[in-house]
């Protein structure tokens, strides 16, 4: 059985437990349900709110470099720290935060495999409501690495030239255009369907029942063999608003080691609302 291309980016819950008092390991919880952190977190972890802290509050964009520096600094993180992200729903938003950390050049970022739920369900792991005491730092971020991000202009070029793999990680009903967004969602698009040429691989395909990632062999089989993602080409993952796709971006880039993978965070809410672009159903 082969290993993940970058095996260091995933750590186990046991690995985290052993390093709870390591000052160079900083734990950050990022959840879909922003109340989860307050209900109980891994001792020493800080909590980021994806709605208010990881996206620009005015423009539709990721947070700026200055905002990221403020966020990381207030969380007591330094450039050479090991940042371990974890969260609910198979590390969905933790993976989005991972993408943001990488955009701003943080070297050592990892995900706790299985996320919050795995920790929660292991009897030897403690959970606390105690406030984490933080010594703020002055964090200096790199300029954003836009090679990790696809813009709509990149995507339109790909559609025209068929030059890259497109991976649609939304549900089958969103992919087929049966629904534009999952029921009850307020962020939606004008049209249903998918970007021409995209392959449908729902994001949670990458994880097992317990929330940990599938093995390298299984992932390779799913993405490369069954779906025909060509690793020699550039690959772009997208979903509805760019969060689910950062999870698949993580899988393709770090676990499978595909060199050029971008997250299209504009995703369907942008593409499916544009005038005059081709759509497949």
């Amino acid at each position: 059985m082969s290993e993940y291309a970058n095996k260091d980016v995933l750590v186990t819950t046991d690995w985290v437990k052993e390093r709870l008092s390591d000052p160079k390991v900083k734990l950050v919880e990022v959840d879909v349900d922003t109340k989860a952190y307050d209900a109980g977190h891994v001792p020493g972890a800080v909590g980021f709110n994806w709605e208010t802290q990881l996206q620009d509050q005015v423009a539709r964009d990721v947070i700026s470099k200055a905002e990221f520096e403020k966020l990381a600094g207030e969380a007591g993180i330094t450039r050479d720290d090991t940042v371990v992200l974890y969260g609910d729903n198979n590390n969905w938003f933790a993976a989005y935060a991972f993408w943001i950390f990488k955009l701003y050049g943080h070297q050592d970022v990892r995900l706790m495999n299985g996320g919050r739920n795995k920790w929660l369900n292991e009897d030897d792991k403690e959970l606390t409501v105690e406030k984490t005491s933080i010594k703020p730092t002055t964090y200096k971020a790199s300029d954003p690495d836009w090679s990790l991000r696809a813009r709509v202009t990149d995507v339109l070029k790909i559609v025209e030239q068929k030059s890259a793999n497109l991976v649609d990680v939304r549900s089958p009903d969103e992919f087929s255009g049966k629904v534009i967004a999952p029921p009850g969602m307020t962020e939606t698009a004008q049209r249903g369907g998918h970007i021409p040429g995209a392959k449908s691989v729902p994001w949670a395909t990458a994880v097992q029942q317990d929330g940990t990632f599938k093995s390298a062999d299984e992932l390779r089989k799913i993405y490369l063999e069954q779906q025909g993602v060509d690793p020699s080409k550039e690959t772009v993952a997208y979903c509805r608003i760019g969060e689910r796709s950062s999870h698949t971006w993580f899988v393709l880039k770090y676990l499978l080691g595909i060199e050029k993978v971008k997250n299209y965070d504009g995703s369907w809410t942008e593409y499916g609302s544009m005038v005059g672009v081709p759509i497949e159903k």
Binding site: D33, K35, A204
Partner: peptide, 29 residues
């Protein structure tokens, strides 16, 4: 009452939201 939003997007096979929060309260306190 603890009302939680766990239906942002479908996460097949999990339904982790309300169960996870209740377990968290019981474990953390």
């Amino acid at each position: 009452l603890d009302v939680i939003n766990d239906s942002l997007c479908p996460a097949p096979g999990l339904g982790e939201g309300s169960i996870g929060i209740a377990k968290s309260h019981a474990k953390a306190q």
